[in-house]
Computed example of a mutant assay.
Amino acid sequence: MRKVTDELPHNRRPALRSDAQDNRARILAAARALFAADGLRVSMREVARHAGVGPATLYRRFPTKQALVDAAFANERRACHAIVDEGRAEAETDPWRGLCLVIEKVCEVNALNHGFTEAFLFAHPDSPEFIASRTYTVNAIAGLARRAKEAGRLRADFVLDDLLIMLMANQGIRAASPADRVAASRRFAALIIQAIQASGERSPLPPAPRLATAALLKNQKL
């Protein structure tokens, strides 16, 4: 038999008690931090331990790992939508700049959150939330790429698979601090942009973060 609350619209269901709300907030905060740092290999038990709640409490709020991932990355999905919308707006006057803006900002989001990149690209093919987000983002980028090609700024042999390669490579960035990851991601994005542009123009690269140790760089001229 279904509970009465299961039959009520979402906006008419009883609000969570304050302690339940606190538990949910702690779980989401823990999941976001762990997924961002270590990707989706983090277990539900680790999330519960990091949040300071028992496994039963975690599963009461999020019955499956997919449900937890969907909730944990809601902000990142919205950020991706905002980025492609900004790129589309920029493309009204400069399609190439609109595409570049999306590449730069998506790389930065992904560099700061390894778990989101993993979930977005591979891990949750059956999640309605990620399916909708992928479809929206990919369609927007495809449109920007088409317009940039028509403007003669994007190389003619660029395909969307190149974007997948870019995101996979960007996901591998490792650095001691979030600031260094962002700096490395910006430089990587600049290199990618120069590689896919149709013309021979070359803009200066952003500063390179010091990712290697001094010993590795000793006696190197580059």
Rank of each mutant, 00 (worst) to 15 (best):
A198L: 03
D162H: 08
F158H: 09
R2I: 13
K3C: 15
D6F: 13
N139C: 13
A123L: 14
E86D: 05
A151I: 09
G52E: 10
N113Q: 13
L8N: 13
I103A: 08
L217N: 12
R153I: 02
L163A: 10
L217T: 15
L68D: 02
D162T: 02
P178K: 04
H81V: 04
S203L: 12
R45G: 06
R134N: 14
R13A: 06
A74V: 02
L68H: 03
P55H: 12
A132Y: 11
D126T: 01
I193E: 01
Q66T: 10
A25K: 13
L34E: 01
M44I: 07
A36D: 06
T93Y: 07
R210T: 15
G52W: 03
C80V: 00
A140I: 00
T57M: 08
S43K: 06
E46H: 08
S18W: 09
R97M: 10
V109E: 03
R88S: 02
P204D: 09
E90S: 07
H114E: 13
E108I: 01
S133G: 10
I165H: 12
V84P: 05
I103V: 13
W96T: 04
F73A: 08
A48Y: 03
L8Y: 14
L112A: 12
M166D: 05
R41H: 06
R13L: 11
L164P: 04
E76A: 00
A119R: 00
R60P: 08
H124M: 05
R97V: 00
V53F: 05
L40H: 10
T57I: 02
L58P: 11
S185E: 01
P207A: 12
N11D: 15
A56E: 15
L68Y: 07
I173V: 09
A51H: 04
L222S: 15
D70N: 07
P55R: 10
V84W: 06
R147Y: 08
R202P: 03
S43L: 12
H114S: 10
N139L: 14
C100H: 00
L16D: 11
E90L: 05
R181L: 02
E7Q: 14
P207D: 14
K221D: 04
R77F: 00
N11M: 15
A36F: 05
L211N: 04
R210K: 15
A56K: 14
A145H: 02
P125W: 09
L121P: 07
T117A: 11
R88H: 05
E108L: 08
R147V: 05
R174P: 08
G87Q: 08
H114Q: 13
D126K: 04
L154N: 10
V42Q: 00
L99V: 07
E201M: 12
A132G: 11
N113W: 00
K218W: 03
D38Q: 09
R12I: 14
V182N: 08
Q194W: 14
D38H: 13
V182M: 01
P9W: 15
T135S: 13
F130Y: 03
R155V: 06
N75S: 00
